[in-house]
Design a protein around this nucleic acid. Structure first.
Length: 1177
RNA sequence: GCGGAAGUGGCGUAAUUGGUAGCCGCACCAGACUUAGGAUCUGGCGCCGCGAGGCGUGGGGGUUCGAGUCCCUUCUUCCGCACCA
């Protein structure tokens, strides 16, 4: 029979599935090999021809490794949480789980028909509870951990607590928030439980913190840095803005150094490693503190102390008293060249530093900066702008006054948001100094700074005090020593990488296994995992702007037993408090919600309770209510009669100031006065605070109640604070879900033991499979998935859960497959009025006669007026009747040819199938009721032009693997994808060559069959020539596969089959080995032939790869290229048994050689045995 | 601007350590078999030239007996980063 690919492929795919042919063994004496493809998101569009490229390569490799005797793990699954399914859900109301299920089915069908050797028994989906249970579990491990810098690894948080209990905060070297407290053992023990928890949160590896996030209003969620490209969301391309929000984050920065070092130990493409290095962005330098000069005037005394207080308190300050600005620099050696300081417009000290005289200028500049979008700011890097604050710092080494400027070239997010400007050495500083006429001081004897900055490190220092005359290395050492000695600075390493935001205000993701009590996050019990994603009525934010999970009915955490340290006394819990640590999603509600959550930040604390004892029961003479709702706010205490709101602030005071002011304004608007006290004030002297409140109440008139419309409602809406609260004892869950990368950051471990319901994977499985030996996927994951995975892997190793420092030993980036669009060319004629040809051009009705022109004729018709005129005349003649109906004819005045996208299904080898195209366009035209005429101008063939573009529906250039498999079969598709070129190279898809591969497979099939297509092989001894062909390909494929050069081995297969065909070989022994060698590439046809050769079905995948024997390739003679002065002139067959001298003699004795030498004797003869003979004349 | 990768026939590409540039396939051309060809088979196919021969791996220069491969320089394309202190 002829090669019936369709039957063969279906038959074997069914066989493999039914027999579990590719199941990896769990207990095996064979060496392991783990081949993994990057986790696909099952999109609704299904696969296009570019997707399987990497899968085919990895499948060939996996199959090859099986033949080589390895126990191969080659799994597949789905990263099935994500935005597209949810967007679809929002539009249609269909549950994302259903969409996902459908998409996975399509994906699976498409994968199956390509014949991959996946072990489907290990399939995982990130969206199934059995899987995300362990994603949540790992989150819990992160929450329960901190990074001990001294040990350089993550440790359990209990160890930190233990340390605090025994030594206080002394001696802790942790990766943590900036503003951690310093405390003694006793102070720690004196803290309330909540205070302790709030402090611990600053150390946990996953933590809640107000941070600047990438907020995408259109998607209604925050995005990670790697999901933002040039100020727009990577998915969808919506604008992204910076916002401060309370967010879950992952302390990936703790691993910055290890992530960097690990890159040197893994076999990844250099560009990919470089991208990660850039992303991590390590720079070595020093931090230096510039003391702020006390302002000259007596009046701003308060301002100075404020400055000092603002900076010194939270850090372990060793500069006493004075305020300072801290900068990071990589060139601390240039410190004597500092002539000004620049801080970011967003810097927290800007307001304090601005003198009254400069206030106008500074505010104007900040306003101008704010107006500029992120994009403008990036695009506009040439304009120098900035403003002087009016204040000065002092150079810590020579006490010189240094003016402080603000400018947007300094980024708030990098380093300390402040730079010491050295205009002689830094070009930006140089331009700034020139623009604002600031001094430029050279600090190197060989510096040239007439026209631009000179950052040289060579030469000796000048103008640099004690460093004068030193060289760079000595100077850097000296200056750091000096700074450390006076406590003004120290050597420091800075990383560009930020902690990763870990929450998304979306539905279709893993719920975070956290609930809130007293505004603080707590983990649910491990036994309560998985925390199942609840059902919601709509996949949109709630009216109050909370994430979709806020819609879930009765979705509250009900602890089984009281948490050990602080039993939940109902009185401190209130549902509204859960929102405290979160800011919300929808930009429409944002402002409202910001206030809402800020308002609720302050919990019924100790201070509040104490004060309540002094305010309750009209002790002040007025009825005071607490936790009372006013409009959308909830006040700590309020007198409705007098309209006085009393608020207690926690230690977040400074951060809240702006929001508090806003709220005060609004409350004022509703007729309320607001007074505030700090917790410390209350705790220090509660009676004084109560007296203060009484005095204020006495001084106030009664409230103007007309100012709030639903006043009566608010009268009755007094929020109870006692135990009668509805749902007391239950707590709000975290309402945001985990980001897309959560599930994919550890999935390769799940494949090792996919059905384990006791652990994420058994220790035994992890010990056996260890890590991924070969990982194939696109480079688009460089700074996302591949970084996060390495991070989680390192963390899991620290926890003793896994054993390898790096998860993916060898990684290959497959190139992108672009589309190849076809264009048809159309004349754009103008029509002219018959009666008035000069002025009567009739625009807009050119569809009457549509004339397509073959691309190879375009130039001819454009340049050759005669051909064109002829064409017009003949068209006018032919369509006289139609055209006269419009009283017009085609004008020969202007001729324009316009290319149009044409669906590539009408085009084969750039030749248009006119009848196919006409059939289609006629149908379309009929639909639009157009009576049109199509003309095609061409010679023999109608050709189209082409261009490389992205593969997309709108460009009519999508190639679907289903169509190709239908026409040529999976084996042909597999081999053709490999044949296209090197795996790593990006290239446009072009189906043109696929016929050649198909012909090859038929030719291969025919080796096993006689003229009548009957199976027929011979048992004879193979000939020398046959064995030579065979062993050439045995070696070639081995070499090629090991270096992932799949395209070259496809060529070699063709050569081998051509040779065997020429030899008319049907030798069974040779062909059987050929079947084994080819089977990784074209598994279906090989399985079929394997069985026809008399082997047991299903055993091919585990056959032994043929052993290469070099003896078959040994030749007696070699056709030496004989060259003169490096130019090859002829070939000469010379026995390889001759040594160099004899070979030379052999060559010179040859008559033809003598002819080329033309009587001259060569100056020198170079003989490379088995390679070349070269004569120098 | 910085970093990385890559430029070879009409096209996709090959040449593994410096050793015959263009393997293999597509397209194209000619022929055979055919009622036919979008089937199959045979041959040709880098460019110029009738030929002998000459020229050819983006351009220029160098090292070498010999360079697609190594070095310098320059141009182009693609990718990543981008005021990173």
């Amino acid at each position: 029979m002829d090669y019936q690919f369709k039957d063969i492929e279906q038959k074997w795919q069914k066989f493999w599935a039914e027999n579990g042919t590719f199941k990896a063994e769990d207990n095996s004496t064979k060496p392991k090999y783990y081949v993994l493809d990057m986790f696909p998101y099952p999109s609704g569009a299904g696969l296009h021809v570019g997707h399987p490229l990497g899968y085919i390569a990895s499948d060939i490799f996996a199959r090859y490794k099986r033949l080589k005797g390895f126990n191969v793990l080659h799994p597949m699954g789905y990263d099935s949480f994500g935005l597209p399914a949810e967007q679809y859900a929002i539009q249609t109301g269909q549950h994302p789980a259903i969409t996902t299920e459908t998409n996975i089915a399509t994906y699976r069908r498409q994968l199956d028909q390509i014949g991959f050797s996946f072990d489907w028994s290990r399939e995982v989906r990130t969206s199934s509870p059995g899987y995300y249970k362990w994603t949540q579990w790992i989150f819990m491990q992160l929450f329960n951990s901190w990074y001990n810098k001294a040990a350089d690894k993550a440790e359990n948080i209990d160890k930190l607590v233990e340390h605090f209990e025994q030594n206080g905060s002394v001696g802790i070297d942790a990766v943590c928030d900036e503003e951690v407290l310093s405390f003694s053992t006793d102070e720690w023990k004196a803290m309330s439980h909540d205070e302790q928890q709030a402090e611990l949160l600053k150390y946990r590896l996953t933590y809640l913190r107000e941070s600047t996030v990438n907020w995408c209003p259109a998607l209604g969620t925050v995005l990670a840095n790697d999901e933002v490209k040039d100020g727009f969301s990577e998915r969808g391309g919506y604008p992204v803005e910076q916002k401060k929000m309370m967010q879950w984050s992952m302390r990936i920065t703790a691993y910055a150094q290890r992530l960097l070092e690990g890159l040197d130990t893994i076999d990844w493409p250099e560009p990919l490693k470089e991208m990660q290095r850039n992303w991590i962005g390590k720079s070595t330098g020093a931090s230096v503190r510039f003391p702020i000069e006390a302002p000259p005037k007596p009046s701003p005394e308060g301002r100075a102390s404020e400055v000092a207080e603002a900076k010194v308190s939270p850090t372990r300050g060793d500069l006493e008293g004075a305020g300072y600005i801290e900068v990071f620099t990589t060139r601390v050696d240039t410190i004597f060249g500092v002539t000004f300081l620049v801080i970011a417009p967003e810097h927290e000290l800007v307001a304090e530093l601005t003198t009254p005289e400069q206030k106008g200028a500074i505010e104007a500049y900040i306003a101008q900066t704010k107006k500029k979008s992120e994009l403008d700011r990036m695009a506009d890097i040439k304009t120098v702008s900035g403003a002087f604050t009016g204040s000065y710092v002092l150079n810590p080494l020579n006490g010189e006054r240094v003016p402080i400027w603000i400018a947007d070239y300094v980024l708030a997010g990098y380093g300390t948001g402040a730079v010491m400007a050295v205009p002689s050495g830094d070009q930006r500083d140089y331009l700034f100094a020139k623009h604002f006429n600031l001094p430029i001081v050279p600090i190197m004897d060989i510096q040239h700074i007439e026209t631009e900055a000179d950052p040289t490190k060579d030469g000796r220092y000048i103008n640099s005090d004690f460093m004068n005359g030193l060289f760079y290395n000595e100077a850097t050492k000296a200056v750091i020593a000096k700074l450390e000695e006076i406590g003004a600075g120290k050597a420091k390493v800075n990383f560009r990488m930020r902690d990763a935001i870990f929450g998304r205000q979306r539905y279709w993701g893993e719920p975070v296994p956290v609930y809130f009590k007293d505004g603080l996050p707590y983990l649910i019990e491990e036994s309560e995992l998985p925390l199942i994603l609840p059902e919601v009525d709509k996949y949109l934010p709630t009216e109050s702007g909370e994430p979709p999970l806020g819609r879930a009915h009765d979705w509250k955490y009900k602890p089984k037993a009281a948490p050990s340290k602080s039993p939940p006394v109902g009185e401190t819990s209130a549902p509204h408090q859960a929102g405290n640590y979160r800011e919300t999603a929808d930009p429409v509600y944002y402002e409202q919600i910001k206030d809402f959550s800020r308002d609720n930040r302050n919990q019924p604390t100790e201070a509040e309770d104490i004060l309540w004892q002094l305010l309750r029961n009209e002790q002040t003479g007025y009825k005071i209510r607490r936790q009372h709702a006013i409009s959308q706010f909830i006040a700590d205490f309020v007198s409705l009669q007098k309209g006085l709101v009393i608020e207690l602030d926690g230690h977040h005071h400074k951060l809240n100031k702006e929001a508090d002011d806003d709220r005060t304004g609004i409350l004022n608007h509703f007729g309320f006065e607001v007074i505030r006290f700090t917790n410390d004030e209350v705790l220090g002297n509660p009676q004084k605070v109560a007296d203060n409140i009484k005095q204020t109440l006495d001084s106030l008139p009664d409230r103007d109640k007309s100012k709030i419309s639903d006043d009566s409602a608010s009268e009755v809406k007094v929020s109870p604070t006692g135990g009668d609260l509805e749902g007391a004892g239950s707590y709000e869950y975290e309402l945001s879900t985990m980001p897309g990368w959560a599930g994919s950051s550890w999935y390769w471990y799940r494949y090792m033991d996919a059905h384990n319901d006791k652990e994420f994977a058994s220790k035994q499985a992890v010990e056996y499979w260890k890590d991924v030996d070969l990982y194939i996927g696109g480079s688009e994951h460089a700074t996302g998935h591949l970084l996060y995975s390495r991070f989680w892997n390192k963390f899991m190793k620290d926890m003793g859960l896994v054993f390898e420092e790096e998860p993916f030993k060898k990684l290959i980036n497959q190139g992108m497959i672009q589309g190849r669009s076809s264009f048809i060319h159309k004349f754009n004629f103008q029509l002219e009025n018959i009666d008035d040809p000069e002025n009567g051009l009739v625009p807009g009705i050119d569809h009457i006669v549509v004339v397509y022109i073959s691309y190879d004729l375009v130039d001819k018709y454009l340049n050759d007026g005669v051909s064109f005129k002829k064409l017009i005349d003949s068209l006018n003649e032919r369509y006289k009747h139609t055209l006269q109906g419009f009283n017009c004819r085609i004008s020969s005045k202007s001729h324009l040819v316009i290319p149009h996208h044409i669906d590539i299904k009408f085009v084969n080898n750039d030749v248009l199938d006119i009848s196919k195209f006409e059939r289609f366009s006629n149908e379309n035209l009929k639909r639009f009721n157009l009576d049109s005429i199509n003309e095609f101008v061409f010679d023999k063939k109608f050709t189209c032009s082409w261009e490389v573009e992205k593969m997309s529906k709108s460009k009519f250039n999508v190639v679907n693997p289903d169509d190709l498999i239908e026409r040529y079969g999976a084996d042909t598709l597999r081999m053709y994808e490999m044949f296209l070129g090197p795996l790593e190279q990006s290239k446009p898809w072009n189906t043109n060559g696929i016929e050649g591969v198909f012909k090859f497979l038929r030719k291969f099939w025919r080796l096993f069959h006689n003229d009548k297509w009957d199976f027929s092989v011979s048992d004879a001894e193979p000939s020398k020539a046959e064995l030579k062909s065979l062993h050439k390909i045995i070696r070639k494929v081995e070499e090629d596969v090991e270096r992932f050069s799949f395209n070259t081995s496809v060529s070699s297969f063709m050569i081998a089959v051509n040779e065997l065909t020429d030899l008319k070989s049907n030798n069974k022994a040779v062909l059987q080995d050929m079947v084994i060698i080819l089977s990784p590439y074209a598994p279906h046809i090989c399985e079929e032939l394997w069985v026809l050769l008399g082997n047991k079905a299903g055993t091919l995948s585990y056959a032994a790869y043929p052993k290469f024997n070099s003896a078959y390739l040994v030749e007696d003679d070699f056709a030496y290229p004989i060259s003169i002065n490096g130019k090859t002139k002829m070939n000469l067959s010379i026995p390889l048994s001759l040594d160099a001298t004899d070979t030379e003699a052999f060559v010179l004795a040859n008559a033809d050689v003598q002819k080329y030498l033309d009587g001259k004797s060569p100056k020198k003869v170079i003989v490379v045995k088995g390679r070349i003979v070269n004569m120098v004349v």
